[in-house]
Design a protein around this nucleic acid. Structure first.
Lengths: 149, 149
DNA sequence: ATAATTCCTACCATTCCGATAGGGATTATA
DNA sequence: TATAATCCCTATCGGAATGGTAGGAATTAT
């Protein structure tokens, strides 16, 4: 029941890219350095995010990544779905699961998995990158203030 | 973000043992056969459940397992905590995590993990073995009725 | 004594995770 | 046009976790 490093790194990167929304593209290398993420690993993660349509890339010198949508159109649910595949505690309640479990008719546990999947999904899809950016700024302001005192 | 086979098998076994609450002890072998779970694997799982204080065992011939508490005192949260270790999407919000993350002061994502952990926990700890037994019986009654028609 | 059980420990095969690595394609700019 | 800075594609790899399997000891009812 753990979210992978890939998932966490990807979310960190997405929030960072969202922070620069409307400006110059931001490089994977830069993100990797600032958040202490293995550079080549992050490259792959960015590719995943690109394939999922969450970021767009600009190749060549001065290239980098930008959001493919606005920060308030991308939720953490979108991100984790792209990165970790699917948010569900059990395969039988996975979205892209076609084959029905043979014991399904008498299975009483499936409902529980369904409920858990629902509450995770609800939480994650209610939080946008914009929300995370706002929160971050707020947090940094507060930290700066503490520093002054 | 998946619950392990160990977790699922353990919950199935617990519900089964709860079904026999107040009666004779039920053997791991019997559970394994009826639910198609590898026998020796289930043995280990039952040991885990015993160590967690959820079942008690009776050794020797005619031995087996019984609930260590009443079915309405044991929740699915208790079960999964014992089986899968800890229900949290990230180590930094795990219950038995002592060392604070170095980036914690500026980390805005931790709150999200915390929220998810909370909603999973809430769901799982609200469902008792008794609930699951009732549900199962209901389901079986319905199935039997369908069969008659 | 025997059979049925739990219990303890070790081992093992496969898969997944978290990278690392080499090199190609593209692009700004000097 | 050469160069440096990027993204991009593919392959590989070590370690840990997962999902078992296995041998045999201890306990107990019959």
């Amino acid at each position: 029941m753990k979210i992978s490093a890939k998932g966490e790194y990807g979310i960190i990167a997405l929030i960072d890219v969202a922070n620069y929304y409307g400006g110059e593209p931001i490089q994977a290398k830069s993100i990797a350095n600032r958040y202490n993420i293995p550079e080549r690993f992050l490259e792959q993660i960015m590719t995943t995010l690109k394939k999922a349509g969450l970021v767009k890339s600009i190749r060549g010198s001065h290239g980098g990544y930008q959001l493919a949508k606005t920060p308030w159109e991308i939720t953490l649910g979108d991100a984790l779905k792209a990165l970790d595949g699917d948010i569900s505690p059990m395969y039988c309640v996975s979205e892209n699961n076609k084959e029905q479990c043979s014991k399904e008719r008498l299975c009483t546990i499936k409902d529980v998995w369904e409920e858990i999947r629902g509450c995770i999904q609800k939480t994650l899809s209610s939080i946008t990158l914009k929300d995370m950016c706002n929160k971050k700024m707020e947090r940094e302001m507060k930290a700066a203030h503490m520093y002054f005192i």
